[in-house]
Amino acid sequence: MSGPLDFQVTFDCADPEGLGEFWCAVLGYEREKPPDFDTWEEQLVAWRVPEELWNSRNAIVDPEGRRPRIFFQQVPEGKVAKNRLHLDVRAAPGKTGDERMAALKEEAERLVGLGATQLRVVDPAPDNGEAGWIVMQDPEGNEFCLD
């Protein structure tokens, strides 16, 4: 294949719709529209998907089409260990020092209100390039950083 490949980010989770709503609020994304109908309920009925499977998958997209699609798939097991891959949510681009940390802390408060958990604050220091960040978890325990 020639040219760059596209990709999506996939989360294994218990509640694809709920986790998708959380990440829509974090990233300014929206739920992907159904291909043939106005609502997902109509689409799933047309596809003859059993109602107990309606929350088994969900996809959210950047309304501007610039950032990757995020897909959520239901799995039976819960999260048991630290993520090997995580998202860095760029909440303070171009800011440094106290201004950066104030912006990150403000965003952390907003996300806690949406159901996230703040795990720890890493203050700016010489060994991290004076950057600083905040480690968070989404409502299902997936780690991400406010950067």
Rank of each mutant, 00 (worst) to 15 (best):
V80W: 10
E51T: 04
P76I: 07
I60D: 03
P68M: 01
A59Q: 11
R90K: 08
L111I: 14
R100G: 07
K82I: 09
W47D: 11
V61T: 09
F71G: 05
D62G: 03
A103E: 12
Q74C: 03
L111C: 13
A81T: 09
L104N: 11
E51A: 12
V80P: 00
A103D: 07
L111A: 12
A103K: 14
A102H: 15
V112R: 12
R100W: 13
E106V: 15
V49T: 14
V112H: 04
D62L: 06
P50A: 03
E109M: 14
H86G: 06
L111G: 12
P68S: 06
R57Q: 05
Q74W: 04
K82T: 12
R67H: 08
R110S: 13
A108M: 10
E51C: 01
A81S: 11
G65R: 07
F71I: 11
T96L: 10
I70T: 06
V75Y: 01
H86E: 10
L104C: 11
L53P: 03
A103C: 08
N58K: 02
R84G: 09
P93L: 12
Q73M: 06
K82R: 15
M101Q: 10
H86N: 08
E77A: 11
S56P: 04
G97Y: 15
D88M: 02
G97C: 08
A102P: 02
P63H: 03
V49Q: 08
